[in-house]
Design a binder for these strands. Structure first.
Length: 479
DNA sequence: TTTTGAGTTGTTCGA
DNA sequence: GTCGAACAACTCAAA
């Protein structure tokens, strides 16, 4: 017998379909109260960055329209979750609160506090799976331990398919809604200057477009994913990351749709990326300091360089390494960077410039629309060699080799570094090697229209190898 | 307990 | 131009 009001607390699950929290609320209560709380204080040092706030604004607008159309308008509030949620629950006389589990340490702290208050007032607080394919608490090695490598983790979770998606409600009975704040008043969008033009041209946040993007990808690109995903000039990746981060589409929806789309090797490679996303959340769940501390303690002592000018040049796409600069400018303009280029640009910062991965992590956090605490931290640690990746540290990406291998015709570089567009293919990834005549013909004046490389590639590589080697040796000696 | 095999995405050098 | 080995020797997971 259904009775009463259930509060559905949306966080990083801004969707109607396959939303276990909403599903359970509808199943068990007569009326539902959908709520979103903007809680910068609770997130602390990891409050949402600028690009993510732009996305959040539009995603909330979309979710609000969809919920209202179903019969239960979304209530927006700003403040501490531990104040707002219990207050709204009391105001609406809700006996239960439902949310999708979030894996960030700050959400776990917030949830613990909220749960305690709600319980003390005689209300229930239930968290539901769905943010990941698999419950991070449940995935264990045979001896009950925590996986520290991707492949064994992937083999373990592949043994059983993730749960099938839940259907979304056709209609909602809204509770008598408390007053909502106005989304426009939250100031999530940039005003002066309005840097969001490239974001608007690239993205449409929301559940509907998330689904459309998935369908397009599964029809057009997944069949060649293993190759196409490495070519930044092409549309070979799913670009679902921001939709996934905000939960506009669930990973298990994508998993099962990709199974229907094809059983081939390429679709399997794509699903491996979904497992990587899960693995990052898993690592953060079991290692709360992942965003701030190297997973391998030996690297806490690594002598990173302090180099504000180098960092700034990297951030603005002015390193003099074309593929790196193209990536950093794509990030600045569109809030997103192709994955292959993320690795190259990140490797250049951490290895060639020997600037701490935490500086890169911070910049990505502020500029990526898909900024995700787990994926961002785990990936930076992977590139820096401080994480779970046990591969030897002498793997240093060469930006020229990588550029020639994956952007051979230079189309990606020419798109984002137009001042190099006139160079022939053989110099577009290394303009400093071009003869003066070629440079002049292309309208390139090194040091004026485009910078010289911040550091020689051989020199930077060797410096990184020396410092890493020394760090590893000293750690071994102290052990 | 000890052993064994393997580890997302690389680069360089020399044959 | 292509190919295999070396890089340096670690950590993890399972048998």
């Amino acid at each position: 017998m259904k009775h009463g009001v259930a509060l559905v607390w949306f966080r990083q699950d801004l969707r109607i379909q396959d939303n276990a929290a909403l599903h359970q609320a509808v199943r068990t209560a007569e009326r539902v109260l959908p709520v979103y709380v903007l809680d910068d204080e609770g997130a602390g040092a990891w409050a949402m960055g600028g690009a993510a706030r732009w996305w959040l604004h539009h995603s909330l607008a979309s979710l609000g329209r969809d919920l209202a159309a179903l019969g239960a308008p979304l209530v927006l509030r700003r403040g501490r979750s531990a104040d707002v949620i219990p207050a709204l629950a009391a105001e609406a006389c809700a006996d239960s609160v439902h949310a999708t589990t979030a894996h960030e340490p700050f959400w776990r702290d917030i949830d613990a506090e909220v749960a305690e208050i709600l319980h003390a007032e005689g209300r229930t607080f239930t968290r539901h799976p769905g943010a990941t394919l698999f419950d991070p608490e449940a995935v264990r090695t045979q001896t009950g331990g925590i996986y520290g490598m991707f492949t064994p983790f992937a083999n373990a979770v592949r043994a059983g398919p993730p749960p099938a998606p839940l259907p979304g409600p056709k209609k909602l009975h809204g509770a008598d809604a408390p007053a909502s704040e106005k989304l426009d008043a939250w100031g999530l969008l940039p005003a002066r200057p309005d840097w969001a033009l490239g974001l608007r041209e690239t993205w449409t946040p929301g559940e509907r477009t998330a689904d459309a993007r998935m369908q397009r990808f599964l029809h057009a690109a997944v069949g060649n994913y293993g190759i196409g995903r490495n070519l930044p000039a092409q549309d070979g990746t799913s670009m679902l990351s921001p939709h996934l981060h905000f939960g506009e589409i669930s990973p298990r929806t994508i998993w099962h749709a990709s199974l229907r789309a094809g059983e081939g090797e390429h679709a399997r490679t794509f699903r491996a990326e979904l497992i990587w996303r899960d693995f990052s959340a898993y690592l953060l769940w079991h290692h709360r300091t992942l965003p701030e501390q190297p997973l391998r303690p030996a690297f806490a002592a690594l002598a990173w360089r302090r180099d504000p000018e180098g960092l700034h040049a990297w951030q603005r796409g002015q390193t003099g390494l074309p593929i790196v600069d193209a990536g950093m400018r794509q990030l600045w303009q569109t809030g997103w960077m192709h994955n292959r280029v993320r690795m190259i640009a990140a490797s250049f910062l951490v290895k060639h410039l020997l600037i701490s991965w935490e500086e890169g992590e911070r910049w990505f956090w502020d500029t990526l629309v898909d900024a995700d605490l787990a994926s961002n931290a785990a990936s930076w640690q992977w590139v820096a060699g401080t994480g779970i990746d046990a591969q030897p540290f002498f793997r240093v990406f060469n930006p020229v080799t990588q550029g020639e291998k994956f952007d051979g015709a230079g189309a990606y570089v020419r798109r984002y570094v137009p001042e190099l567009a006139g160079l022939p293919d053989r110099y577009v990834h290394q303009p400093w090697e071009a003869p003066p005549l070629e440079l002049r013909a292309a309208g390139v004046e090194l040091g004026k229209t485009y910078p010289y490389p911040l550091i020689g590639l051989a020199e930077g590589r060797q410096r990184a190898l020396d410092v890493y080697q020394r760090t590893v040796r000293e750690a071994a000696a102290n052990a």
